[in-house]
Simulated assay, not measured.
Amino acid sequence: MKRPLITSLALVALATLAACGGEAKSGHANEALGTKAALQPAQPKRETVQGLPGMPPVLDPTDVYAADRPNQLSPAVRDFPSRVYVPNTNSNTVSVIDPKTYEVIETIPVGAQPQHVVPSWDMKTLWVNNDRGNTLTPIDPRTGKAGRTVDVHDPYNLYFTPNGKYAIVMASLDRELVFRDAHTMKREKTVPVSCYGVNHADFSLDGKYFIVSCEFSGELLKVDTEKMKVVGQQKLPFNGAMPQDVKVSPDGKRFYIADMMADGMWVLDGDKFTEPTLLPTGKGTHGLYVSRDSREMYISNRGEGTISIFDFAQNKLTKKWHLPDGGSPDMGGVSADGKVLWLSGRYNSEVYAIDTRTGVQLARIKVGSGPHGLAVYPQPGRYSLGHTGIFR
């Protein structure tokens, strides 16, 4: 008996099924599948990013914040109560706010001059950076209780390498980047720097380098993550520059650096590390926070009580929100559902809750003196890179 001719459409179907590990079906169903496959446009091949060894795979090469969508909480944090942790630098305490009632429900004594509350890489611990106390205070976000302090010198800020291997202490006055074991905080390597006031950072898309701001000397560093080595350094082109927070763009191509003296944010090509350009935003530009849909960035202007909104796709500022009665919006984060921006009021002993859809102030909450790097917790993401919550 003569075998029927296999059409080119059927061959497409067979090839498609074979590639997908499926089994070919006979008759009209097979031809229909082949026709459907042939008519569908070819899907573009998604770029594969070769990340830092040991780092979790990049979910989306076009969006480093792909894991940060509304309420996409990791199983590691899903059962944690929603809280806002506020380090009061001058009061040596952490105020704990219930975001549902906008009330302080607890005040935790910590070490001298707490600067930031930092989620650990595995997201199971919150580390309070007691800068002048030369200690870290761990808080269990499941219970809200503080644990035994850990001796760490000059911990102004704290970050974690994307592979979870090291914690990086921003030793601002010591002029050092100190790489420590991410769990025990044992010192592994000290990297002296010639700039002054290392304070904030963010990592490239592949995690292989990070950009650091040097507050008191107006400089930027580029650091090789794996080699733990400074590979680039430059002075910002503004007399009296004072760089603060650092954030990478969703596509990983640009870094934004807030500058409280230049009253704007610098836009930097991180790969090339060429001279950045300045985008004016407002007086005392300080904190940078990405929206849950990766479309916008909230920019706190501490010196004028406003928040500027930057649209990534349009590459421009689109809105400015003014706090009623002014204020000093500083550091903070976005709620898990993306609906509320929380910021500390550095010079007003208060915290602001702002509706991210309208810019309307939802609450103004009194806390201790000198509130600084508050952490909204838990937040979506697979792991933490540190600061008040940089998640991937």
Rank of each mutant, 00 (worst) to 15 (best):
V150R: 13
K165C: 00
N130P: 01
R142T: 12
H153F: 02
Y156F: 10
V152R: 05
I168N: 02
K145R: 15
K145T: 14
R132T: 12
P162R: 07
R132Q: 15
D174C: 05
K165I: 00
T137A: 07
P155Q: 15
D181Y: 07
N157E: 12
V150M: 07
L158Q: 09
D181G: 07
T135M: 02
W127V: 06
V169I: 01
L136S: 04
N130H: 01
L158T: 08
H153M: 07
G164Y: 00
V150L: 08
D140E: 11
V169W: 01
D151L: 10
K165V: 02
K145S: 08
T149Y: 02
N163C: 04
Y159W: 12
V178Y: 05
T161R: 03
Y159P: 06
T161N: 01
N129P: 06
V128R: 09
T137Y: 06
R132P: 10
I139V: 14
F160H: 06
P155E: 08
L136P: 01
N129K: 12
D140N: 15
W127M: 14
D154K: 10
L158C: 03
V152H: 09
L158M: 04
D174L: 11
N129T: 15
N134L: 09
P138Q: 10
F179D: 06
D181F: 03
P138L: 06
I168P: 01
A171W: 01
E176C: 10
D140F: 02
P162M: 07
T135S: 13
D131F: 06
P162D: 10
F179G: 03
S172G: 06
T161Q: 01
T135W: 03
M170D: 04
R148L: 12
A171P: 04
Y159D: 13
A167R: 03
T161P: 00
L136F: 02
G164H: 00
F160T: 05
G144R: 14
Y156A: 13
R175G: 14
R148M: 13
T143M: 11
N157R: 11
V169T: 09
L173R: 15
T125C: 07
E176H: 14
G164E: 01
Y166V: 00
T143Y: 14
I139S: 15
P155S: 09
N157A: 14
G147V: 11
R142F: 06
N157Q: 09
K145A: 13
R132I: 12
P141D: 13
D174I: 04
